[in-house]
């Protein structure tokens, strides 16, 4: 075990050469997250996502049979833009096989 001394290991020198602090990153992340959480709360938002998913799937299902369990939804909440990706496996379709819908909010 290491002995006593000043705690933390890095003293005033590291202050001089400090890496660009991580605090600004933390602030940006929080601002984005909280903006989304306050706007309708996370539950309101998952309602919207559920609605979008249902309606998009409905449209696709009108033309090709799809397996409800093989639908992947990806979300990336950004500051200026949020992307919503809905991946649908379409078994019979030979044109690639995935349909993606992107919605932009804010």
């Amino acid at each position: 075990m290491s002995g006593g001394g000043i705690g933390g290991g890095k003293g005033f020198l590291s202050g001089l050469f400090a890496r660009r602090g991580s605090a600004p990153v933390a602030r940006d992340r929080l601002q984005i997250l909280l903006a989304h959480e306050r706007a309708g709360g996370s539950e309101g938002q998952s309602d919207l996502i559920a609605k979008l998913r249902e309606e998009i799937l409905e449209v696709i299902a009108r033309h090709v049979p799809i397996d409800r369990d093989k639908v992947q939804i990806k979300l990336d909440r950004g500051a200026a833009m949020t992307t919503l990706e809905i991946d649908v496996e379409v078994p019979g379709l030979k044109l690639g096989g995935a349909a993606a819908a992107k919605s932009v909010s804010q």
């Binding site: 992340r29 997250l33 996370s42 998952s46 996502i49 939804i73 990806k74 979300l75 990336d76 909440r77």
Partner: peptide, 16 residues
């Protein structure tokens, strides 16, 4: 989710 840096990508959760 925050500590893992995944907070922007949460769609569903354990309760769902």
């Amino acid at each position: 989710d925050l500590v893992m840096g995944a907070e922007r990508r949460v769609v569903y959760d354990l309760v769902n």
